[in-house]
Write a protein that binds this DNA or RNA. Structure first.
Lengths: 117, 117
DNA sequence: CCGATATAAAACCTCTTGGTTATTAAACCG
DNA sequence: CGGTTTAATAACCAAGAGGTTTTATATCGG
C-alpha cells in the first residue's frame, strides 16, 4: 500500500508543483486555469501535472476538451506517516500525541464512515 | 525562518538519503558507519551527506579524523507544517484533531515542566 | 617520521529535469 | 463543414543529479 515516497517527495520538491497543489486544494481546475499564474508555457505545466499525476497527487477527469485536475492527497498521508517517526526529534515533549492519535484513529475506525477512494 | 522546502523535499526524494536519516534517528554516526550498509562508494555517501547538510537535515561535528553526523530534524517540522494544510483532504473526518492538537499544545505550554522527558 | 584511517575533492560520465517551440488531437461552436 | 479552444506530444537543449575512480588532506598510532 506504500505510495512511492521517492516520486512523492520528488514531485513536492518543485515550487511550481507545490503551488499547483495549493491551488487545487481550493478546488478542481483545468490545465489553462492552473497555467495562468505562471510565467511558463502550457506544455511546461502539462509536464508538471504529469509528474504530479504519476506521484498520485493529482487525478484528472474529462469534460469536453478540458481535463479538470483534482487534488489526490493520499500520498501526503504517507509522507506524514513517514515524518511521524522523526517527530520526537524536533518536539520531544509531544511524542505522546502519536499514541493519542492512534487511539482516536482506531476508535473512529470502529464506527464506519465515508472514506477516500 | 522558513527552511527551503525545495531543498528539503529534494533531499528526502532519495531513498539512500532517507535511509541515512533513519539511521541517524538512532543516534550519531560517522561517514563510514553510514556508508557501510550501502552498495555504494564512500564519495557517493559523502555527496548524499552534503545534500542533507545543505538542506539543514544533518549537521556534522569533528572528532579526530571522523566527522560524526547528527540528525537535525528542524526542516521536517516545516514540511509537516506545509502538509498540515492538506490534511483535511486525505482525512476529513480527522480534521478536528488539528484543533485538538492545538489545544493540547497550548495547554502544555501554559503549565511548564510537567511534560515528557 | 611513517603508515594507516577517515573523509573530502576533482574529473568524468550518463540519465533525468525543467524548460522551450512547433505540431497534433480532440471536442466544441456557428 | 471549418475554425477555435484545450490540452497533449515531439524534438530539442542546458543544467543538475547520482554515480564512478582517482587523488588529496588531516589526523591518529606507533
Amino acid at each position: 500500500m506504500h505510495t512511492d515516497l521517492d516520486a512523492t517527495f520528488a514531485a513536492l520538491a518543485d515550487p511550481t508543483r507545490r503551488a499547483i497543489l495549493t491551488r487545487l486544494a481550493a478546488g478542481e481546475a483545468t490545465v489553462t486555469e492552473l497555467a495562468a499564474p505562471f510565467a511558463m508555457s502550457q506544455p511546461a505545466i502539462s509536464k508538471h501535472l504529469r509528474v504530479l499525476e504519476r506521484a498520485g497527487l493529482v487525478s484528472r477527469g474529462r469534460v469536453a476538451q478540458r481535463r479538470p485536475c483534482r487534488l489526490e492527497a493520499g500520498p501526503l498521508r504517507d509522507v506524514t506517516a513517514w515524518l511521524a517517526a522523526y517527530r520526537d526529534h524536533w518536539a520531544e515533549r509531544y511524542q505522546h500525541l502519536d499514541d493519542l492519535l492512534d487511539e482516536l484513529r482506531t476508535a473512529e475506525q470502529t464506527e464506519p464512515g465515508g472514506g477516500t477512494p
